[in-house]
Amino acid sequence: MSIKQYGLQEIKKELQQLDDKQAAALCLRMARYKKENKELLAYLLFDADDELAFAENLKQDIGLMMSQVPSLSYQAAKVLRKILKHINKNIKFTGSKQVEVELIMNFCRNYLEYVDRRTSYKPLRLILTKQLEKMKKAIVKLHEDLQFDYNQEFDELLEDAVKRLPWLNKHDLVL
């Protein structure tokens, strides 16, 4: 015997029938059981009103984490995946393509700064190329004015990456 799963519409109707105290109690109870629920609730309550300031704080945290990336390729790849998991979770919280582009661009810049450029470890190389592709796709979904600005930043980042990384193929990533 399993618990019946309700759809989002049914849950929404039921939540609309609750008063404020009951809804708050349900939110707090839900936040108790999963760390991600608590983080999302904290974001919505304290940081959702200024997404770009939230992104700037995240950039500082990411910069600190990236400065501590180990020099061994296997361990560096593990740490970078952990950082990307943190970034992607926060991108999911904001739901903003602009914040997504900002955070991924920041990650790529930090990658160029802190990760060993001479490595032949393919998973470490793929981390950067996948993020550049992801950024390229996110830029296309932005407003025209923002697209123009971010395309210029993307091109500058790509030029810098090609200069620093001999293994990077620019033609695969050009917008």
Results as ranks from 00 to 15, higher is better:
residue 2 S to P: 15
residue 2 S to T: 14
residue 5 Q to N: 06
residue 6 Y to W: 04
residue 6 Y to S: 00
residue 13 K to D: 12
residue 14 E to V: 13
residue 14 E to K: 04
residue 18 L to H: 07
residue 20 D to M: 10
residue 24 A to M: 14
residue 25 A to C: 09
residue 29 R to I: 11
residue 35 K to R: 03
residue 35 K to E: 08
residue 35 K to N: 01
residue 43 Y to T: 01
residue 46 F to L: 02
residue 48 A to E: 09
residue 54 F to E: 02
residue 57 N to W: 01
residue 61 D to I: 11
residue 65 M to E: 08
residue 67 S to V: 15
residue 71 S to D: 13
residue 74 Y to K: 14
residue 75 Q to E: 13
residue 75 Q to R: 06
residue 85 K to L: 11
residue 87 I to T: 07
residue 90 N to H: 09
residue 91 I to E: 06
residue 95 G to D: 01
residue 95 G to P: 02
residue 96 S to D: 10
residue 98 Q to A: 08
residue 99 V to S: 04
residue 101 V to Q: 04
residue 103 L to V: 03
residue 103 L to C: 01
residue 109 R to E: 10
residue 110 N to S: 14
residue 113 E to L: 01
residue 113 E to F: 13
residue 115 V to H: 01
residue 115 V to W: 06
residue 115 V to K: 03
residue 119 T to C: 14
residue 121 Y to S: 08
residue 123 P to A: 08
residue 124 L to W: 08
residue 125 R to A: 03
residue 125 R to P: 11
residue 126 L to Y: 15
residue 129 T to A: 08
residue 130 K to Q: 12
residue 134 K to V: 06
residue 137 K to N: 15
residue 139 I to M: 00
residue 140 V to S: 05
residue 148 F to C: 07
residue 148 F to Q: 10
residue 154 F to M: 02
residue 157 L to Y: 05
residue 157 L to D: 01
residue 160 D to F: 15
residue 162 V to F: 12
residue 165 L to M: 15
residue 170 K to C: 13
residue 172 D to A: 12
residue 175 L to E: 05
